[in-house]
């Protein structure tokens, strides 16, 4: 390809997006053995507007920084909510934070679930494991604007009943008449679990939605999303009706460091939420 380049004329001055802003831990709730939900508030009282599906970079003083999706209610920007699983060198100490502790926040970054564009459609949300966290803001948004959608279905799979996030909320949502909630676990003892047993994909053939007028929001580990997409396609969904949230090594979060490249995409900028048809050529391909 011919390179017909010209030097850039640089006029605008930007603030440094690499500098974290201090936030204070307000509340901590334990979700599972290793996963916690934190509420943070800005020291200077600033609000935190974001779109469902976006993420932040959370910084622990001197330890490091990690990308974590926002899991709060977009209608309540005064509160920043993150659900964090203690698995790495930064998330482990982040999860030990107590009310009053201070962390650094950069964000919000990335693309979002198409909750506005999906108005008028049915919605099917498929979540696996901690993948429910990035979807929760979309669920809040949809419930806050319930009248704008057709049927809404939430399908959630977790390894065991003890690995489920937001149990209280799930029970509340299940009680609503305008929301079909199906939860399934890989295996369970009958005395601890009365719900479905089986992988989350088995819920899809039974879910009530119109395959031609539905938007699917899918989040979970990549293999879970791969099998979910296969089931959704079997129901007749087109690739452009399916949205997924990708995970890669986000470091700068502003598409400058190169780490989170996924084929031609920067997951931090073009994602994490992708319409499936835009990544299907590389989705599931090894080591892209």
């Amino acid at each position: 390809m011919a390179v017909t380049l010209k030097p850039q004329v640089i006029t605008e001055v930007f603030t440094d997006p690499m500098v974290p802003v201090p936030y204070r831990v307000r509340r901590v709730r334990r979700e599972t053995a290793d996963t916690f939900t934190f509420e943070y508030e800005a020291l200077d009282g600033r609000r935190f507007p974001f779109a469902p599906g976006q993420f932040n970079m959370l910084y622990l003083f001197g330890v490091g920084e990690v990308p974590i999706s926002i899991s709060g209610d977009p209608a309540h920007p005064e509160l920043l909510v993150h659900t964090i699983r203690a698995v790495g060198t930064v998330t482990k100490p982040l999860c030990q934070a107590k009310p009053g502790d201070i962390i650094g926040v950069r964000g919000p970054f990335g693309s979002s679930w198409p909750v506005r564009e999906a108005a008028g459609n049915d919605i099917v949300i498929v979540a696996g494991g901690v993948g429910l966290a990035p979807l929760r803001p979309a669920i809040y948004y949809i419930l806050n604007h319930r009248g704008e959608y057709g049927r809404v279905v939430l399908l959630y799979g977790a390894r065991t009943p003890g690995d489920m996030l937001y149990k209280k909320e799930l029970a509340e949502w299940r009680g609503r008449f305008d929301l079909q909630v199906e939860v399934t676990v890989d295996a369970a003892r009958p005395d601890e679990w009365q719900g479905n047993v089986g992988v989350v994909t088995t819920l899809i053939p039974r879910a009530h939605f119109d395959p031609h007028h539905v938007t699917a929001l899918v989040c979970g580990p990549e293999i879970m999303m791969r099998f979910t997409i296969l089931e959704l396609q079997k129901r007749g969904l087109r690739d452009d009706q399916i949205y997924i949230s990708m995970e890669r090594n986000m470091k700068c979060a502003i598409a400058l460091c190169g780490h989170c490249q996924y084929g031609p995409h920067f997951v931090c900028k073009d994602g994490p939420v992708f319409r499936f048809d835009r990544v299907k050529e590389i989705f599931g391909r090894r080591e892209i």
């Binding site: 890989d186 994909t201 099998f227």
Partner: peptide, 19 residues
């Protein structure tokens, strides 16, 4: 085939992180 597939998927523990 569907049951086998569902079983295989569970075999790989698809919700887990493997850190």
């Amino acid at each position: 085939g569907q049951r086998l597939q569902a079983t295989r998927i569970r075999l790989i523990d698809i919700y887990g992180s493997h850190a």
